[in-house]
Amino acid sequence: MELTVNGQRHQIDAEAGMPLLWVLRDILGLTGTKYGCGIAQCGACTVHIDGMAVRSCQIALADVGGEVTTIEGLGTPDAPHPVQQAWIDHQVAQCGYCQSGQIMSAAAMLALQGEPDDQQIDRIMSANLCRCATYPRIRAAIHDAARRLATG
């Protein structure tokens, strides 16, 4: 089965029903995307499929109908995505486990939303859980990233 991840095409030899998250982590070695709950309750496994945030633990390999972007493909250490840069500047992460999912959700939202207010951020990000409760810093970083994206 063919799968495009972070701009690279891969031939995947796996069961059609294997969750995308398993493919990313165990077959392609892209371990930046995390396994949290496995039932779409926490958001740690969030990736983009054609730009839309999707919980990769929920979608089977056979159902992936577009190009996948993971945290490794959003930006690089030398050229981070504005959301990643804002995350660094605000030192959002505590333990860090949920953060790649948080960043992927935030980046997908900001591609559509412009500059969201606190209520919009809470509505969009409340399905991404953070056990360290870094929520105030997540919100601050999203505001900052939105400003950076707006000014180019």
Partner: peptide, 26 residues
Amino acid sequence: GAETLPCATCHVTSSAPANGPNDAPA
């Protein structure tokens, strides 16, 4: 959910919708 979080972020569009008891319905 286009204004906030698309339903399809978790309720994925699936060729095998009768999924597990703890999965998000699809």
